[in-house]
Amino acid sequence: MKIYLLLFALTAIVCVIAEDYTTKYDDVDVDRILQNGRILTNYIKCMLDEGPCTNEGRELKKILPDALSTDCSKCNEKQKRTANKVVNYLRTKRPKDWERLSAKYDSSGEYKKRYENVLHPTKNN
């Protein structure tokens, strides 16, 4: 019986640890990427399957669908701030790219509406 409790406890710990996204790329200089059109374009091409991906790009592509569907529930606070910064930048500075990414990752518009409600809670969507 004790062995089953131990196995259950270990399984629970592994599940809790596995619930968060990796912090391996939390120190990437996102501001530098956003200010460098060539690098940002390469990331966008990666996300749209139009070009090669860096390790960071592959990781982002892997987790993005889950992050969108779970409201970034597995993100730490830094990841959430970074995601908001990138989304705001793309929406205001690169709207055509934002629309293309939205079409690929949010074709129904569900996540876009949710995001708008967070940014502008008094707006009716």
Rank of each mutant, 00 (worst) to 15 (best):
E50F: 00
P121T: 01
Q79F: 01
S69D: 13
V14N: 07
Q79M: 00
T92H: 12
V118A: 12
K104T: 05
R94S: 06
G37P: 01
N76Y: 08
R114N: 11
G57W: 03
E110D: 13
M47W: 01
N36E: 15
I39A: 11
N42S: 04
T41E: 12
H120V: 14
N125W: 08
E19D: 01
N36G: 08
A18V: 03
P121W: 07
L10A: 10
V118Q: 10
G57V: 02
G109E: 05
M47D: 01
L90C: 08
S69N: 15
I33H: 04
N88D: 11
E56V: 05
D31I: 08
Y43R: 14
S73A: 04
Y21G: 04
S73P: 00
L5F: 15
R91Q: 09
Y4C: 15
P52N: 06
S69I: 05
T41Y: 03
D71W: 02
D49R: 02
C75L: 03
V28G: 10
G57P: 03
T54Y: 04
N124Q: 14
V30P: 09
K123S: 05
D66G: 01
D29T: 05
K78L: 11
S107P: 10
Y43D: 15
E59G: 00
F8W: 07
I3R: 05
L64Q: 07
L90S: 07
L68T: 06
K104D: 03
N42W: 02
C15E: 08
S102A: 03
A83E: 08
V14S: 09
S73H: 01
I17C: 10
T11L: 14
V86E: 14
A12N: 05
N124H: 15
A103E: 09
R91S: 09
D29F: 06
